[in-house]
Computed example of a mutant assay.
Amino acid sequence: MSAGLPWPEAYTVSGDDCATRMPLGHSAPLAEAVRDLAELGYDGVEVQVRETGAHHAETLARTVGAAGLKVYGIGTGPVAAHDRLTLTDPSPDVRRHALARLLGAARLAGELGVPVSLGQTRGTFLPGLAGMQRVWAERAVEQLAEEAAERGSRLLLEPQSRANTSLWHTPAEALAVIDSLDVPAGLVLDTHHLDAEGVDAVRAVTDLAAVTGCLQLANASTRGPLTVGDPRLPELLTALRTGGFTGWLTLEHSQDGDSTKAAARSWTALAEAASALS
């Protein structure tokens, strides 16, 4: 694996179906982004999609594979970020549209043989509707998890800060949801969201490494690229190794105006942290 790590190292990219590039991922079009990341030493990408379905799997795999990289996961952030579609919108049509997009992403993930993740598309509560909105979200997540499982994928639920969503802010809350499902599912842990909710990231990773499919990394203070010498990085990597983590790492952070430099800084920081473990 790259950077001397025992797990694949991926970078966030936007699918060609996205209206604009996601700000926490590579700023270039997909084909250009994967070539750049391959030259830097990354193993693959986590692709954020907006409305791509199973019929796009071959094209996506070919584009990423042409650079010698792999798709490790399908993200669904653009469904809400670009089109404002959520599972808790008061409008039934909007909720149906949001779920349809997510189901399409699950089918795409199944064709690729990778997990599909859910974050902010679960939405936010409105006064007086919280109870009903929670029910809508829980039912939709159950459908999404079942669709993913049927298609050979797996749902990964990401605890996110209350700035993004009204639902499932902590790993414990997200874990309760996946434990209630009748199909296998897992977690995405994001150091930014853990920090924002006052959750000790190293402790969370230590406790939940076995059920975590992906760890998303960013600089703790700026949510920018990782920094060489960050003392928390070796601690996180040790926690992953100790906990039996078998997933992948994704760099999901701001680009500081230059994605090549941002990706290179993060790759170098992880390589330095990995060397401290050996």
Rank of each mutant, 00 (worst) to 15 (best):
P234I: 03
D83T: 10
T20S: 09
L126H: 11
D182R: 15
R95F: 08
A196N: 03
P29I: 04
P29D: 12
G229M: 04
S180D: 00
W248V: 13
E272P: 01
E173M: 01
C18E: 08
A204L: 09
S221T: 10
A57H: 08
D195E: 14
S254A: 13
R21D: 09
W136E: 14
L87M: 05
V202R: 05
A54C: 01
G128A: 07
L108V: 06
A54Q: 13
T246C: 12
A67F: 03
P90E: 08
D256N: 12
A148R: 11
H26G: 05
A239R: 02
V177W: 08
Y42G: 12
V47I: 15
A264F: 00
P225L: 04
A100L: 09
T242Y: 08
P234E: 04
G53A: 14
L108K: 05
H26L: 12
G229I: 01
T206F: 01
R50K: 12
T63D: 11
G247S: 05
R50V: 00
A274N: 07
R84M: 13
A33R: 04
A220N: 02
D256I: 05
H26K: 10
S275Y: 05
L112R: 06
E138T: 09
M1A: 15
L189K: 00
A210V: 11
T206E: 13
A61C: 04
P23H: 01
G123D: 10
V228R: 14
S166Y: 11
G53Q: 07
A209L: 13
L237M: 00
H193T: 10
S161C: 12
L233V: 02
L215V: 15
E58A: 14
S180G: 02
